[in-house]
Write a protein that binds this DNA or RNA. Structure first.
Lengths: 179, 179
DNA sequence: ATTATCTATAGATCTATAGATAATGC
DNA sequence: ATTATCTATAGATCTATAGATAATGC
């Protein structure tokens, strides 16, 4: 059996790189370099690039609501705007790319759907069987991620943070409150 | 000079294939096969794969409003839902993928932004200098495309068409009307 | 002895190009 | 003669594997 620390380092490197660039744009060589091993080591430990990808799937959105009385809709938007302001990678913008680019898109789709939908449902307290409101909220957040980051609309220069949070947050909160 | 019909056939094939699969997943061989020529012919006529891609950029959303008194927001959503119901490709879902996968993402981003933003601005009659409402509308439509098609939420089985148009359409129309 | 890791490379795939051949116009 | 198109292939890149070497534990 291979070293567990090695395995973890490789998966962490994979998660970072895949999460920024998708599947095909990242090579085994890239992951190996970031993890500090040879490409052969990555292959030996993970078996194949596809298995590395599966093991490197992102954990889903962080929805910790520590000490704020802000409505959930605004909180969700605030996180996205904060990442924009700090130039950090935007998971909501990468979801589509990670699914489309995956070695098995059907599997990736199901993984993301389950992860994102269930977490948001729990967060907004959606108890309906069809989770309609949750799905609509996920759509609007995917849209904000794609629009603000992938398309580069609503940059920090053109859309002031608090104003954007207020406006788009109200939209998301409207869905949560049942339109 | 090469035959113009040949060039058109190649670009049409490119537009179809890139529009379904993005840049990297489509090979010159694929485009050549669909257009009915050899790969070498495609290269000779277009120069490079990147130039073919640029020439194959999709035209942007069709926003023809022939004879309906439905609000614009609902119309925009209706088109997306109709494509879902007919199993057609969804341009709004491909935008992110086409940008991310492009040989020059910055150029692709600017192209898409200009095309989509200006058309929607015109359609919804947004005359404000920052086009804030337009950008928010684009976000929500990108989100619906990604959510319904790339993530496979809101399939025809789980979200009835008219109900979805009513609900998400109202959301989009709310932005147009100024929240 | 066994485990961890590396070097070297086979085999597949893809873009791009060189050079040959077929079709067309004068 | 020129234009349109093809065959063949060079060169680059990538995953995956085979086999060698270095480190570790007994």
């Amino acid at each position: 059996m291979t070293d567990n620390a090695t395995r973890t380092a490789i998966i962490d490197a994979g998660r970072e790189l895949f999460g920024e660039r998708g599947y095909n744009a990242v090579t085994i060589k890239d992951v190996a370099a970031r993890a500090g091993f040879s490409p052969a080591m990555v292959m030996k430990v993970m078996g194949s690039k596809a298995e590395l990808y599966t093991a490197s799937a992102p954990p889903g959105p962080n929805l910790d609501d520590s000490g704020t009385d802000e409505p959930v809709g605004h909180q969700l938007v605030r996180r996205i705007v904060a990442r924009r302001d700090h130039g950090e990678a935007e998971p909501w913008a990468m979801v589509s790319i990670l699914i489309h680019d995956a070695p098995d898109p059907d599997v990736a789709r199901a993984t993301f759907r389950d992860r994102y939908v269930s977490r948001i449902a729990e967060r907004i307290g959606d108890g309906t069987p069809d989770l309609r409101r949750t799905k609509l909220v996920v759509c609007t957040l995917l849209g904000l991620g794609a629009g603000a980051r992938t398309l580069g609309m609503l940059g920090p220069d053109e859309a002031e943070s608090e104003e954007l949070i207020r406006q788009y947050g109200a939209l998301v909160q409207g869905i949560i409150d049942g339109v």
